[in-house]
């Protein structure tokens, strides 16, 4: 396992987790931290209180369908989720997630991960390991530019760095 690999626990859900489940409309007025406390409550009331920084969410098809609200991705990030794996993502959620610095990865292996499994992710190598079962799975490796962006905290943050650096050089 390379030094870049991150390890955490798996939270496993099914198909069609929509933006209302991730960021419930009734809690949208609460602000990012308050809203995050309600993340996934409709299907797992204990999620927000048990998830720890570095944990992973695994789900089925169509993760993040629904509205374009960026808060759906922000809530997961606020709670410390290190990456979301799903069979497929709604496009806007997917872009939002990566643009705010939350890796979203296609993971088609049904039944490969159970709730509570210890997982390790190496984004640079494009590999996810289920430490509990001892099996490795490839994920599409992210280009360096995107990994840098995710590490910088997202698109706007990385742009600040990029243009700030340019000003210094000139």
């Amino acid at each position: 396992m390379s030094a870049a690999a991150k390890t955490g626990r798996a939270f496993v859900y099914g198909d069609g987790i929509d933006t209302d489940v991730l960021a419930p409309g009734h809690a949208m007025k609460l602000g990012p931290d308050g809203l995050a406390r309600h993340c996934l409550e409709a299907i797992d009331p204990g999620f927000a209180s048990t998830v720890r920084a570095g944990d992973f969410v695994f789900a089925g098809a169509d993760f993040g369908i629904g509205s374009s609200r960026e808060q759906a991705a922000i809530s997961l990030k606020k709670l410390g989720v290190a990456a979301v794996f799903a069979k497929s993502f709604a496009r806007i959620f997917y872009r939002n997630a990566i643009n705010i610095g939350l890796p979203a990865l296609i993971f088609p292996h049904e039944g490969a991960v159970s709730a509570g499994d210890a997982i390790s992710l190496d984004l640079a190598a494009g590999r996810v390991s289920n430490i509990t079962t001892g099996r490795d799975y490839p994920v599409s490796p992210m280009p360096e530019h995107l990994r840098t962006m995710i590490e910088a905290g997202g698109l706007m943050e990385s742009l600040k760095t990029r243009f700030g650096a340019r000003e210094l050089i000139q």
Binding site: R95, P143, L146, L155, L159, R162
Partner: peptide, 19 residues
């Protein structure tokens, strides 16, 4: 099509990422 944050980055840099 891209959202507003993506488009801001696109018109600032001339590049974007896609799957």
């Amino acid at each position: 099509g891209f959202g507003a944050t993506d488009m801001t980055a696109i018109v600032a840099t001339g590049e974007t990422w896609t799957m």
